[in-house]
Amino acid sequence: MSATISHSFWNNVSYNARRYPLGVAGGIIMIVFVLAAIFASAVAPLDPFNTNAKASLAAPGPVYLMGADMMGRDVFSRLIHGARVSLAVALGATIIGSGIGCAVGLACGYIGGWFDLLVQRVTEVMQALPLLVMALVITASLGPSLRNTIVAIAIPLIPTVARVIRSNVLSLREMPYVEAAKATGMSEWRIAIIHVLPNTLAPLIVLATAQLGSTILTEASLSFLGLGVPEPYPSWGRMLSESAAEYVRTAPWLVIYPGLAISLVVFGSNLLGDALRDALDPRQRD
């Protein structure tokens, strides 16, 4: 039985891969970055923490592929190690934020009444504060660490996701197929899981991939203010923000390569997200 299931699963994957080449490209980008992050120590040619005064601000060359920073650390190696922090923050915060937001939105749409009213007002207050300010307050009170950074960035994501999911749930609950399921005697809980949740997938994926990029940038800002992942561990955001003002003219590689890495991840996740949204929708097949 499981053999046939996995067989059809791979059939499905290869079918969709052919239909969504851009999605495959996005997937490959993401996989490459994730692998680089996991095997950072093996992939990185040099020690990312090793300073070398002689190599300060060295231009890209055979030893320092992407140049070196002010302290003579290899940019390429730091980028690879930085992928750990940046991807952990981006994926972690997005998944946690979207997951909790989704649950809250679902609960609001379903329970309604006073609970909904209260949660709505709270999310409105949260939304009134910029993402960064909220994250700042949270990390400032929790103290800087990777885990706290993820939490600090995830929490401000919750209201947006919750509101989108809530409004989606409210309209989905009125769908005749939900009523029909109710009429068969299905429990509300099962209706929510089988009929409502899967149909909120499309907006959720779009929202989550859009947020992925902003989480990396928020992390950069936090790190810049000394509230992100503590030194000396590299993150893309900090590599970028530390050098942006000072070295953009004299040592542009310090800015270009981290910027490129961030852009690639955002681009890849968007491509993958769009393809996933379509591939998971049976109406797109024929």
Partner: peptide, 8 residues
């Protein structure tokens, strides 16, 4: 159209 869940 709306009485059948499009994903099932």
């Amino acid at each position: 159209f709306s009485s059948l869940n499009p994903r099932i």
